[in-house]
């Protein structure tokens, strides 16, 4: 039992706890990204993955003796900024897509032969939706 407690304590030390948790978050986020069809959920999943990465980074920063590495913290902050902007952009796209199709899901992929074609150089805009999403991509 002593061994277990020691292991636990060791594990709970920020040097290892954070990276482990980060890795788990990363994996969970990946799972969510794959399994969820609703785009907002997918974006959330990506954010969870991002959080995982940052946790690892912070854990790394806390490793070793002495005060935490300021560089790592700076990196985390920068990373969060990037992640926020990417998320905002993604959400904006999703909103646009939802306006166009009525669903916050992606259109099916490559069966491209009958996909509608737009050519901006001809200056024709069709804001009124493309084909409806297929069953495969509908939120379950």
């Amino acid at each position: 039992m002593n061994g277990l407690a020691e292991t636990l304590a060791h594990t709970l030390a920020p040097g290892l706890l954070y990276p482990t948790a980060g890795a788990i978050l990363f994996a969970l986020g990946l799972y969510g990204l794959i399994r969820r069809h609703h785009l907002v959920l997918r974006i959330l999943a990506l954010n969870i993955m991002g959080s995982g990465v940052f946790m690892v980074l912070l854990g790394v920063a806390a490793r070793g003796e002495g005060p935490p590495d300021p560089v790592a913290q700076a990196l985390t902050l920068t990373g969060i900024v990037v992640a926020v902007s990417a998320t905002a952009f993604a959400l904006a796209l999703v909103v646009h897509l939802t306006r166009l199709t009525g669903h916050a899901v992606m259109l099916p992929g490559p069966p491209d032969d009958d996909a509608p074609v737009e050519d901006i150089s001809r200056g024709e805009h069709h804001a009124d939706g493309g084909p409806a999403a297929s069953d495969e991509d509908r939120p379950s």
């Binding site: 990946l30 990204l33 785009l39 997918r42 974006i43 990506l46 993955m49 990417a86 952009f89 993604a90 796209l93 999703v94 646009h96 897509l97 166009l100 199709t101 992606m106 259109l107 992929g109 996909a115 509608p116 737009e118 901006i120 805009h125 069709h126 804001a127 939706g129 493309g130 084909p131």
Partner: peptide
């Protein structure tokens, strides 16, 4: 272009890229 296909393609591209 702002069409559904384009936005959908962009979203896919974005998600993959962020991943």
């Amino acid at each position: 272009t702002g069409t559904a296909a384009a936005v959908s393609g962009a979203v896919r591209y974005l998600l993959v890229n962020i991943l």
